[in-house]
Nucleic acid binder design. Structure first.
Length: 455
RNA sequence: GAGGGCAUAGCUCAGUAGGUUAGAGCGACAGUUUGUGGCACUGUAGGUCGUGGGUUCGAGACCCAUUGUUCUCCCCA
């Protein structure tokens, strides 16, 4: 074993990063709890069957598979070799791998609902904050292990869920201090666009292309549409659609003209308007923006879809979600609709770091360091340290009787705001000296005064 | 899956057209008379130049391979 290293695309999180990440997690968690969502955790690994085929061909390739144990058993050698040949032929085989790491939180949740739906009270609202793994090639902002943070409601068709979820988004980002725009569209509207452009079967092609608008621009989207088999007239219609502008009302009016009598489209518009109207007089409304160019790559969405963007940072979406009609159908439990959202924690972290939105309190660890000035002195200090700890104040006793210099430096490094000095003199007088390391001010206190000191 | 960049001290990097004992800053450690720090000064330690081949009288520099890392495309968060 030479130099130790991390597996590609994974990260260690040091104290200050963990504290900031926890701050984000805590904020999200507390808001979700206040909306009645309940926590769920699922295993890091699932049966390969549960995951395969749920994320498309590309997704299947990116699932981290776990090699079965016991393949070195001599009695299984022959079988293992046969199985391996199947793998070389591009097939998956239970003989070699029957488990895989969680790829996202949605499918494990669907599996959970499918297994437990008879006991669950519907609608079931759960949130889940756990890492997921993808055998992707890492690059900027993309890792092989990263956290997802999802909230879903299953078993309800009510649009009130969409109202609440958009509200939840707004609330979380308000608490985090991140100015955001919550973009909203409806897959029914996109379906209508496809119908108008000559075929519902073109829906996937159209959404995949439109989804890239932000990234590659209108011209490239038109190119891609053309490559995907749409003719000039159809592309022109889509261009008109993509260029709608104005406020929410104006855009909706333009859309209504284009959609005309299309039934699906009008249903989609009505749903969108309902949610927008619900928020008309709340603070959420100011963040909501109807954006018909929003598509979302995932094809299981069927109704309203969301995406959140930070207003003051150059960054892709920091959250997204939408309604899907049949979450558990793939597990043979039909007719359970759902709607969910997710937070991109890593990106939220980057945005908050860039805009310096983390409050200073997030960073404080140890509040007070007791200097170690000898055996008798440190014993007196230790009992005070324990008393402070029992009051919930993070306190440390320096581990050795070192020079002042070193003890001060330790406090500096750990950004400890206070030092308590108990030397032979203080010990005799039964006092302590407390020093504010930022200002340099110090004062003598009795032991009981120290214990009621506000750090 | 396809294609680029990078790899020198714990960290960030220099290292000029291949040429003697590979440098700096930061950090670490020690000291500047061991009860008041963050500064300053002095000193010390720390590198088989990712690894393996090759070209050359001579390679950290050039060539090939390999590994790691990073970025872009595909796809996605």
């Amino acid at each position: 074993m030479s130099k130790p290293s991390l597996p590609q695309g994974t990260r260690d999180f040091s104290a200050s990063v963990v504290r900031k990440r926890n701050y984000i997690f805590q904020t999200i968690r507390s808001v979700m709890e206040s909306y009645g969502f309940q926590p769920l955790e699922t295993p890091a690994m699932e049966n390969l069957d549960t995951l395969m085929g749920k994320y498309g061909d590309e997704g299947d390739k990116l699932i981290f598979k776990i090699l079965n144990n016991g393949l070195d058993n001599p009695t299984k050698h022959e079988q293992a070799k046969i199985e391996f040949d199947k793998v070389l032929a591009g097939k998956n085989t239970k003989g070699l791998t029957e488990r895989a790491l969680r790829y996202d939180l949605t499918i494990p949740f669907a599996r959970y609902v499918a297994m437990n739906h008879s006991q669950l009270t519907l609608p079931f609202k759960r949130y889940q904050i756990q890492p997921v793994w993808r055998a992707d090639r890492p690059q900027k902002g993309r890792y092989r292990e990263f956290y997802q943070c999802d909230a879903d409601v299953v078993g309800s068709y009510s649009l009130l869920n969409e109202v609440e979820l958009s509200n939840l988004y707004a609330e979380v980002f308000k608490q985090l201090g991140v100015a955001v725009t919550i973009k909203m569209n409806n897959r029914k509207i996109l379906a209508a666009l496809a119908e108008i452009c000559g075929g519902a079967d073109k829906m996937v092609d159209i959404t995949v292309a439109i989804d890239k608008l932000d990234k590659i621009g209108l011209d490239k989207v038109k190119e891609e549409l053309s490559e995907r088999g749409l003719n000039e007239q159809q592309i022109n219609t889509i261009e008109t659609y993509l260029l709608f502008n104005g406020n929410n009302e104006e855009k909706i009016n333009s859309l209504k003209n284009l959609i005309g009598e299309n039934e699906t489209g009008n249903k989609g518009i009505a749903e969108l308007e309902w949610v927008l109207n619900y928020h008309q007089n709340s603070f959420v409304g100011t963040h909501l923006q109807a954006d018909f160019t929003l598509a979302r790559g995932l094809n299981y969405y069927t109704g309203i879809i969301f995406e959140v963007k930070a207003n003051d940072a150059q960054m892709g979406s920091i959250g997204g979600g939408g309604r899907y009609d049949d979450l558990t159908g793939t597990f043979d439990v039909p007719n359970i609709p759902g709607v969910g959202i997710s937070f991109g924690v890593d990106r939220i972290y980057d945005v908050m770091e860039e805009l310096q939105l983390f409050p200073a309190e997030v960073q404080t660890g140890t509040k007070v360091l007791f200097f170690n000035l000898g055996d008798a002195e440190s014993r007196a200090a230790y009992s005070l340290v324990q008393s402070l700890r029992s009051k919930g104040i993070a306190a440390e006793l320096y581990h050795e009787n070192s020079k002042f210099d070193k003890q001060f430096k330790y406090a500096d490094k750990k950004q400890i705001p206070y030092a308590v000095i108990i030397g032979s003199k203080e010990l005799q007088e039964n006092l302590v000296v407390i020093k504010n390391l930022l200002t340099g001010d110090q004062q003598s206190l009795s032991n009981s005064e120290l214990l009621s000191f506000t750090f």
